[in-house]
Amino acid sequence: MSKPIIATTSLAGCFGCHMSLLDIDERILELIELVEFNKSPIDDIKEFTKQCDIGLIEGGCCNSENVHVLKDFRKNCKILISFGECALMGGLPAFRNGIPIKECLDEAYLNGPTVVNSNPDKILPNDDEIPMMLDKVYPCHEVVKIDYFLPGCPPRADLIWDALVAILTGNELKLPYEVVKFD
């Protein structure tokens, strides 16, 4: 049997979940024995070159590009996993939800203390090449179907490892209380 293929991406996240993935330490060597990576920052493959078994999604969707990438992942991966607070709930970026987007942009480009005198033409970025911002930050499952959710900020390395092993071996993953409690 050929090796299972994994793809990963970071949408509106901080790459902390990917750092946590790397935090499985030397088991990363074991992992690449077990699986093959396709589109992922880990191997820097930019586009899908084949159908994948598992897609790991870090971060929620804050702009149109995030949505396209996420939909691309849904199309190319049999199983999609949201991993980390931002993918599950929107996380820190979702703090802007509830503030009108015009106010956010004005603060960022016109009125914020670090920009107040440095944008004399009062330009708000609007080039066609730039992704369009969404009205709010969406968790991934509000855009596409997500099969599994791994909580944490970031999810512990062991949890990611256990989850991947569970899926690859077809066993049930145990999520102890301390990884799902938030209050």
């Binding site: 970025p125 369009m132 969404l134 009205d135």
Partner: peptide
């Protein structure tokens, strides 16, 4: 979802 931001910029 993008209507508001496109109008803003």
């Amino acid at each position: 979802a993008v209507a508001e931001s496109c109008e803003a910029v």
